[in-house]
Design a protein around this nucleic acid. Structure first.
Length: 576
RNA sequence: CGGAGCGUAGCGCAGCUUGGUAGCGCGCCUGCUUUGGGAGCAGGAUGUCGCAGGUUCAAAUCCUGUCGCUCCGACCA
């Protein structure tokens, strides 16, 4: 491809509203343009990257035995009413009426549609298992779209669905997809972790998220330094403490702490560490008060509270509720004498006996509180959000926290949809059974954004070869010079015929402009040919990732290039 | 949903307080010079100042409404 015939509008400056690096670089490199909030045009250069990702995903899905199909974007409300999600999905589901006043929606996901299709055709266990996938534009009307392609309203997703006759089969389907996902992200040369994720409200099921590691990630995950355990912090389990200081403190003592509402204020006021304070949070759990105690420097994980109590709704108590339940204003609740039936304490508070807590009385706290001695109905459990340095629940090694971008999610659904939509089949005994389902998503457009978040420098994007729209940028520095031009054309044709995507910069621009654009657009390999290099009988080769330069002799170009390419590719951790 | 901010040339912005008929940088077009890390000079094109009302002799500027976009927040005591 010749740049003079291509559409690659690059920008020196990014639009003011682009906050994150991938958004800025994708805009500057002529990959995307915003049409409206959270909705983007994919320009040829951006689309080509998306296509490369799609192609790898497609190969691995096919290899895993899944069948590609294509479902509609517009869906009838009836199905969503039937599954119960017309009510529950919320405003992210974009709804509208057609000319006959029929309720419709734009598909944010396709469980309903595919389950409807399968239930209409599949009658016998002989037709199972089934695995199908599609790549398609989804629409989710996010409250606040942001970060360019990272959280758009319209985006491309690969979604797959499996239908099995029994639990064992469903687990196998799940494992197959899990492995396929690992291959996809490995082949894309992304640094990622597959982590345990919260399975939400669907009991008995499990799920994993695939996280691309990047400082700018919205999620925090923990990964064990000693074993393979890795989990989203929302989910990461923490073990009970092993080292206990059983020294019994002196009797509880009330201290005057005027207007010390927060842990930070209180710690300074009493000259102690936040970790010496046990904070008491009151929650409204399905309408009932529940007290949760964690160390002052920790955070309660509401999901754990919800799961532990098998609750539907967990929310922090309103100020009025706090006053009603604790007898004091916000900031002074404590476990001693608290008239709340359920008092939970994080495992960590079992590590020693003396804690500072609220006194259930305005402007007062208690010292030397021993939960075992001074509180009758306290129950210890894993209740807080994991942090860097916590111990692994599996092997007790240290957990390391890192930021990640969720690019894939595999989910064992069980019978959630087959039940609500009545997707059944007859087993060998002629008995009607519910299909066991799984669903699996990859945010294709987000993968591209996440890749750029992970692979860039101050000059621009650094594409890993598998995702690069063009593996090679060939800079023809003197397109007006007959000899240079002829040689550049020859190199271009040779590289293209060897199966590479090549973009030759044949514009009549100054060299500096070409260097800047090449770095910005991030092809992993740059070749530079100008009057000087031609006179020396070489072409200059630059590894975009390392910046390392090499001179390739023109008379032995084919083999020299092949050797260099191998070197460049070896720098990327690509499992193929 | 609550709060804040911004809409002026393709992009980044100034002008608005104190009304007088629109400017800067980059980009774009033409010419000459230049040519290995975002060139120089000269000339040129491009704006219903988001939209709709209002005030005024006169509105980018003041007022009202409206639309769009962006950011922050949605309660960890």
């Amino acid at each position: 491809m010749r740049l003079s015939r291509y559409y690659l509008p690059t920008l020196k400056e990014a639009p003011a509203d682009a906050e994150v690096i991938s958004h800025r670089l994708m805009t500057r490199a002529g990959m995307i343009r915003k049409l409206t909030a959270g909705v983007y045009n994919y320009l040829p250069y951006g689309w080509k990257a998306i296509r490369k990702v799609e192609e790898i995903v497609r190969r691995e899905m096919d290899r895993a035995g899944s069948l590609e199909l294509r479902l509609p974007a517009v869906q009838p409300a009836d199905l969503w009413i039937e599954s119960g999600r017309w009510e529950h999905y919320g405003k992210e589901l974009l709804r509208f009426k057609d000319r006959h006043e029929r309720d419709c929606c734009l598909g944010p996901t396709h469980e309903e549609v595919i389950t409807d299709m399968v239930r209409g055709e599949v009658r016998s266990y002989r037709q199972l298992p089934l695995s199908m996938y599609q790549m398609q534009t989804k629409f989710r009307d996010e409250i606040r779209p942001r970060f360019g392609l990272m959280r758009g309203r319209e985006f491309i997703m690969k979604d797959a669905y499996t239908f099995d006759r029994d639990d064992a089969g469903a687990d196998e389907s799940y494992r197959g997809m899990f492995e396929a996902y690992k291959r996809v992200f490995s082949r894309l040369a992304l640094e990622f972790r597959a982590v345990e994720a919260d399975s939400g409200s669907i009991g008995g099921s499990f799920s994993h998220e695939f996280m691309v590691l990047a400082q700018t990630g919205e999620d925090t995950i923990v990964s064990c330094t000693g074993c393979t355990y890795a989990a989203n912090v929302e989910r990461a389990q923490l073990p009970p403490v092993l080292d206990r200081d059983e020294t019994e403190p002196p009797a509880v003592e009330e201290v005057f702490t005027p207007a010390q509402h927060t842990v930070e204020e209180l710690a300074i006021f009493l000259s102690v560490e936040a970790g010496d304070i046990a904070k008491t949070l009151l929650f409204n759990v399905d309408g009932r008060p529940v007290a949760v105690l964690v160390r002052g420097d920790r955070e309660v994980n509401e999901i754990k509270v919800k799961n532990l109590l098998n609750a539907e709704n967990v929310r922090l108590a309103l100020p009025e509720e706090v006053t009603q339940w604790s007898g004091a204003g916000v900031g002074f609740a404590g476990p001693v004498g608290l008239k709340v039936d359920t008092i939970l304490a994080d495992f960590e508070l079992d590590a020693r006996r003396g804690w500072i807590t609220g006194a259930n009385k305005d402007d007062a706290h208690l010292k030397n509180v021993c939960l075992h001695r001074d509180v009758k109905n306290v129950r210890f459990a894993d209740l807080r959000t994991a942090v860097d340095g916590d111990l692994c629940p599996v092997c007790q090694s240290t957990l390391k926290a890192m930021r990640g971008i969720e690019v894939g999610h595999v989910f064992k659904l069980g019978t959630k949809y087959s039940q609500s939509l009545n997707a059944v089949f007859l087993d060998e005994a002629g008995k009607e059974q519910l299909m066991i389902m799984g669903c699996y998503g990859i945010g294709v457009t987000r993968v591209v954004a996440a890749c750029i978040e992970q692979n860039h420098d101050t000059d621009g994007i650094i594409f890993p070869p598998p995702m690069a729209p063009f593996e090679v940028f060939l800079l023809n520095l003197d397109p007006k010079d007959q000899a240079v031009n002829a040689k550049a054309e020859e190199l271009h044709d040779f590289l293209e015929s060897s199966g590479l995507d090549v973009l030759m910069d044949d514009r009549e621009e100054r060299p500096g402009v070409k260097f800047k654009d090449a770095d910005l657009c991030g092809a992993p390999m740059q070749l530079v040919l100008g009057g000087k290099s031609l006179a020396k009988g070489i072409v200059e080769a630059k590894d975009r990732r390392t910046g390392e330069k090499r001179e390739l002799p023109l008379d032995r170009f084919a083999e020299a290039f092949e050797a260099w390419k191998k070197e460049v590719y070896a720098g990327w951790k690509m499992d193929v």
